[in-house]
Amino acid sequence: MKTAQEMKPNSVALIDGHPWLIQKAEFTKSGRNSAIVKMKLKNLINGSKTETVYKADDKMEPVILERKEVNLSYISGDDYVFMDPEFNSYELRAEDLESVLPFIEEGMNDVCEAVFFEGKVISVDLPTTIVRQLAYTEGSARGDTSGKVMKPAKLSNGTEVKVADFCEIGDWIEIDTRTGEYKSRAKAPA
């Protein structure tokens, strides 16, 4: 058993006998209120979706899932096609990729993990750290070089991230996909 807080996006919990894919999980703790996790769940049997809240220390039964390395092959509208090293392709809808969608873009070469439940692909996990190029950001407002002052920026797919004030258009940056936060400036991928 795991606590609700330990259950991450793209994991599956068996709730009341039904497998539910956790598409999104937001942890909140404030004041005297119990720490809670707000989740978006998808029922893997009938496809129904629901928004739920759990106490962070509620116990959940995780389902062991099969995983396989894949790369993004192409995007066609809301369809995302991934391919494994044996050239098997796996098609997912944008709605199945909710937790990682902001960081998926054409041409990315990250080695991802396709997640399977009973032989069927249900989602894709990105590496913990990815490198992306900034498509747009304002110039440095304060000339800060410490990395502590942040400013908004956009990736080529339109995703907004906060980056260090010294970052410029065209720079490559590292992003933590668990939090969606900027980590550092990076070298262009080889």
């Binding site: 709730i15 009341d16 539910w20 909140t28 809670i36 707000k38 769940l41 629901t50 928004e51 739920t52 809240v53 759990y54 106490k55 509620d58």
Partner: peptide, 10 residues
């Protein structure tokens, strides 16, 4: 955003 949301139980 969390008010009135369900928590699925056994």
């Amino acid at each position: 955003g969390c008010h009135a949301l369900p928590s699925l139980q056994a």
